[in-house]
Design a binder for these strands. Structure first.
Lengths: 211, 211
DNA sequence: CCATGCAGTTAACAACTGTTCTCCGAGATT
DNA sequence: AATCTCGGAGAACAGTTGTTAACTGCATGG
């Protein structure tokens, strides 16, 4: 594969990406259901009708944005699981590394984070369920990771998934909190996030105590 | 006070409420930043210009909706704290009662729940911070409740607030999940919510273990 | 080298938006 | 009874929206 796809399709994907970028930027101050097709094409410097060469409508573009955003997040998640998955380091180190990775991600992909947080419960059905599906998939991966750890011996399948979901949800929530935090306040948010992870970790360790 | 406010102001508040109700209903399928002034007045059956007699713009109406929605939620929260606050019942009963109250609230105020979940991270700044402030206030109340319980002996102030925030966030998240759950699936969501609360409760009990 | 495919353009459309100004009529005030 | 107040109606405005149709020019594959 990959025979340096012709100058033709290259240009197409270039403007397509320009549309996605422009939309993502415009979405910092509004939500998808109020973002107009013309608004996006105007920002790119292209005729309104050119939009239809790439997307059926704005909802379609929204779904494409979900894929782009959650793909980059997925990369981060894999890195996170790989870095903290050896089971050697005890809880505290693992927690610190996790939060630090989230902080770094938010710093490098703020617009993506805002988009996911906003449209997760937003007004466009197709986008909402696209995000929901992807996050459920993330939870599955986290669960699989957990399943291989000694701490999870004797755990129910459903309980493991529930735990994984809590971690994923907490990850998204923390990222969103970091975004809205006043400049300079990010460290406070990070401290809070570590404390919350510590609580979850404690709950996990004592889950099977009284059984 | 309250001398049966004249038939004049009565009519005014009546149409004002009609505007709020219509907006809340229209918001089930879109988000606030895309909801138009004319759309709302049309649904009520009133001239577009009448809108300005009650709200400066849609953002202003949004803030009013926040107050209405979170006021009803606050009532539920107080009931929740009162019902589970005697400290007598052990964790499991308390958890079941909490989840059941959330389920009941979602069933009776679905539109309010959807609105809060959607606009919490939505595109209208004023509404976002209005919701944030109210939820922070809820967390304070929960914290005060926790502070009076024996389980919280020796707890740091910040840690208590962090715990309270986790409970409030979990409450909102559970309510939102119940909304999006396929009909008949609510019971599954409720079971998951109970498990999550159990985990939080376990974390809480062992918070001071290794200090 | 030429015919075809196709990303992007131009022009036009009916529909809709927020906002202003002017007016009306009925409740409130004296 | 006369006057004032003010919630709401009506008409008009400049701007914007999504979508259509027919076009242009260039990379592409035979």
């Amino acid at each position: 594969m990959s025979h340096t796809l012709g100058i033709r399709q290259a240009q197409k994907q270039k403007t397509r990406q320009a549309l996605l970028d422009a939309a993502l930027q415009l979405l910092e101050e509004q939500s998808l259901s109020s973002l107009g097709l013309r608004e996006v094409t105007r920002a790119v410097g292209v005729a309104p009708t050119a939009f239809y060469r790439h997307f059926r409508d704005m909802a379609d573009l929204g779904v494409a944005l979900v894929e782009e955003a959650l793909d980059s997040l997925h990369t981060t998640l894999v890195a996170l699981l790989a870095a903290t998955g050896d089971g050697k380091d005890d809880g505290e180190e693992r927690i610190a590394a996790t939060v630090e990775l989230i902080v770094a991600y938010v710093r490098t992909h703020p617009a993506h984070v805002r988009f996911i947080a906003r449209e997760q419960h937003g007004g466009v059905q197709a986008v909402r369920s696209a995000i929901g599906d992807q996050l459920a998939l993330f939870a599955q991966e986290v669960k699989d990771q957990f399943a291989g750890e000694p701490d999870s011996a004797g755990w129910d399948e459903d309980d493991l998934l529930m735990l994984a979901r809590m971690y994923v949800d907490h990850m998204v929530m923390t990222a969103s909190s970091l975004l809205e935090a006043a400049p300079g306040t990010e460290q406070r948010v990070a401290v809070g996030a570590r404390r919350q992870l510590r609580l979850l970790s404690l709950g996990r360790h004592h889950w099977l105590d009284e059984r």
